[in-house]
């Protein structure tokens, strides 16, 4: 693995690790799975395949971001608007 790709993979791992700290099911749950997913592909050598896996990881970051956002949005909504949709208050 060339040095450039290597650092990108490590960066991705760090980013995912950081995002997993607040995973609703617990950080441990997320981190063990994260490690497993990375170890599973540790022997991948083809740069193109690595690019693909990095893209996949970036997609997962976005998904987790969206997940946190939606969770927050829904719990806020539940506490502020007990019985109506926020957009309809007028």
């Amino acid at each position: 693995m060339s040095g450039k790709l290597r650092s990108r993979v490590i960066n991705l791992y760090k980013q995912l690790h950081y995002m997993g700290k607040e995973y609703p099911k617990g950080a441990d749950f997320f981190h063990t799975r994260l490690k497993k997913a990375f170890l599973k592909n540790k022997d991948v050598e083809d740069p193109k395949a690595i690019e693909k896996l990095i893209a996949r990881g970036e997609y997962v970051i976005k998904e987790i971001e969206a997940l946190y956002m939606l969770r927050k949005y829904r719990s806020l909504k539940k506490s502020y608007y007990p019985d109506e949709k926020p957009a309809q208050t007028s």
Partner: peptide, 25 residues
């Protein structure tokens, strides 16, 4: 779970999910 999709349904009152993968976000 997909961001693109979540944006379209987040105002639903009750969300029920059916999925065979227990880890699905």
């Amino acid at each position: 779970g997909a961001i693109q999709h979540l944006a379209g349904m987040k105002d639903s009152k009750t969300i029920v999910a059916i999925n065979k993968d227990p880890d699905a976000p």
